[in-house]
């Protein structure tokens, strides 16, 4: 897994590639918590290069949405591949996330 973050107009775009599972979730969790601690409340997660997400990976997503909601912020996801999309659907997680296919839509949603 690889994570990069870029910030524009107070929106933090987190790009996650590779596999998000039990062995990599910690890294993303720490990264996200640092962003939240420095006052971040508007997030876009770019999942277009994410190959796989496990239930442990979903936990970090859940943490992100809970933390963001708690401070009245917004979180949008975009670019889920079929595999990841199916995991979101099966687990019911697609009901608590705002999912978009294009980056512009996700940015517009959190702006």
């Amino acid at each position: 897994m690889n994570v990069t973050v870029d910030t524009q107009n107070q929106i933090r775009t987190v790009r996650i590639s590779g596999r998000l599972d039990g062995t990599t979730m910690q890294e993303l969790e720490e990264r996200f918590l640092r962003l939240a601690d420095e006052g971040g409340s508007r997030f876009v997660f770019d999942l277009s290069l994410l190959d796989y997400i496990s239930s442990a990976g979903l936990r970090v997503m859940l943490l992100a949405v809970k933390k963001t909601k708690a401070v009245g912020g917004k979180l949008a996801l975009f670019g889920l591949n079929d595999n990841v999309n199916e995991i979101f659907r099966i687990s019911g997680f697609s009901t608590i996330f705002s999912l978009f296919s294009a980056e512009e839509e996700a940015l517009a949603f959190v702006s």
Binding site: L62, R89, I90, S91, G92, F93, T95, I96
Partner: peptide, 9 residues
């Protein structure tokens, strides 16, 4: 009917 897992909200 898909629901969220238990323990979330």
């Amino acid at each position: 009917t898909k629901h969220l897992p238990v323990g979330i909200f």
